[in-house]
Design a protein around this nucleic acid. Sequence first.
DNA 1: GCAACGATTGACAGCGCTGTCAATAAGAAA
DNA 2: TTTCTTATTGACAGCGCTGTCAATCGTTGC
Lengths: 347, 347
Amino acid sequence: MLRRPTIDDVAGLAGVSIKTVSRVFNRAPNVRRETREKVFAAAETLHYQPNLSARQLASNRTFLVGLVYDDPDPETTNDYVTAIQSGSLLACRDYGYHLLINPVSVSSPKLIDELTALNRQVDGLIVLQPLSDVRAVNQFITENDVACVRLSQRPLSGYASISVADVEAADEMTEHLLSLGHRRIGFIMGHPEHGQSHDRMAGYRRALERNGVPFDPKLVAQGLFDYDSGYACARRLLSQGDLPTAIFASNDPMAMGVLSAAREMEFDVPGKLSVAGFDDSPLARHAYPSLTTVRQPIASIARLATEELMQRLQNGGSGDANHCLKAEVILRASTAAPSPQAGHASS
Amino acid sequence: MLRRPTIDDVAGLAGVSIKTVSRVFNRAPNVRRETREKVFAAAETLHYQPNLSARQLASNRTFLVGLVYDDPDPETTNDYVTAIQSGSLLACRDYGYHLLINPVSVSSPKLIDELTALNRQVDGLIVLQPLSDVRAVNQFITENDVACVRLSQRPLSGYASISVADVEAADEMTEHLLSLGHRRIGFIMGHPEHGQSHDRMAGYRRALERNGVPFDPKLVAQGLFDYDSGYACARRLLSQGDLPTAIFASNDPMAMGVLSAAREMEFDVPGKLSVAGFDDSPLARHAYPSLTTVRQPIASIARLATEELMQRLQNGGSGDANHCLKAEVILRASTAAPSPQAGHASS
DNA sequence: GCAACGATTGACAGCGCTGTCAATAAGAAA
DNA sequence: TTTCTTATTGACAGCGCTGTCAATCGTTGC
């Protein structure tokens, strides 16, 4: 195996100093065009690539970005995180950075220690929910002036954030169900510690109110953003009192649970019960019936988050821009007008 | 912001040389117990953590492992890759390594250049299928003596590999369908360039043969491991000749496509058509009806792959162990005995 | 003509640690 | 007693690059 070419080799072949080679590769100003071309030619001849470890150490930067998220159960994959990761990976590449994936546990007593260690190993962080809504995490960020961007509806002064207009999206979905004629619309709330759960609930309530439909607490159940809690909530909502003709679950796995409960309890979907989800994961697309849901602009979120972080890293600024992106209601086969006589599916 | 403590600070406080501190943190032999304790105490007092960039540069190692996989469509998440990633991430942590995620494109003309660059930035690679079955990639591995572990059924001399006993698993699934009484069993093949596609097919044929059921090429359709190709293959298999009473698809997304096609063509599942998948992704669990499928031991694969790579990295050996793990058939609601009179579902 | 400024390049210390080799003390064997 | 071996520790060059500062040349303004 050949020794890997270094900056000294390139400088020798190009007939310039190693500092000039460094300037060329770092796009520094004040290098003549012919000098730059000479250096690039030498580098190409030698198949030279800068040694990242050396760059890191000499510049006191790592060229790594840490994506940090809550991972309560490593055995379960989370489509939302995976999609954000995919988008961030590509965006980081465009800036010459690598993305490091860091699952943590919100309930771990070592959470702040882990974040501290991580922060030393990366130039900046992308913090996903629900982490970005945890007080201790935000305190860590401000006390250490951590270069980061947070995906959260809750701004933090001096730090950029990206969010989706969850109130508007949930309002629009609820409006859709109302326009179909539904007046008893069940709502399954997401995890109480996630900021977006409250926004989705707020949107649901706003649309009800705007349409003169009274809010009924009996139509609301508390889920945990997973299939099993969605299933349990649906079983409860479909078992008591004045039954809903539609159920809006705060994410797709919970909506899948609603579909299963409806089936077991012989509520035909969408004939007797309309079901809506949130996120537009593959689950939603491949479900039977295919799920009406809210699509988040994941690629835009990931790109914008990365760009905000790069702004901060490259300009040393204290960017505190807050971007709120619009989501889109996707109509599929799981929602329809309520049947003239609401009741159980007949076998 | 305080300056971060260095090895000099720890050496000063502990009253030893920096080399001794280095020995302690690298678990070198020949350090007295009380010396080691003194150093750890000083390090803890100072909240010292080794500077990874410096370690990388001084040792000519990066303490990074690259997970490299084919990603034809960055907009689509792949449950298998995500699960392997999750397991590898945890396993690497146990060895003090970080995992770098690297999607590439098998059809890109720059594939080998990208692998070359990546190989300079990590200490070793975990190569997933179908990459690990590409001749040019394996040539790159052997020509450069790349430290790696491949997930592949095809061994490469001098390099470790991990695989799942796909022949046996597919054999067992087909046996299950045969034991239910099915004799016309459709088979949807996976992507022709993935090694495991052929093994799954081989298992299917072996079980037929062992049970004296003649292989009928008209019962086989070529899919591409995705929902759409599964849907199209099912539509074809259910439209012509002597119809199958069961369809075994080589992965879960394709099996989901079979469910959709069956529904549209009014084949009740499992009453008139049994459907089986492979992989046991969340799709399988949450499908309606829930899918009978093959579960791969993903956590074991990831851990074993990482351990093999660590063996090679830490012992400089040329490990070439080949591990073949057993998969498990998971019975769910999508398979049942064929109805006494095979035919279309009634309304 | 002289001084000031800007463009361009180069020398080199040092980032924080590891690998290599030397030094020393203590114990065992001849 | 002398020599050899082992355990333990320390000195220091250097990994490949960047930041800082100096040097030099050419141009412009007075």
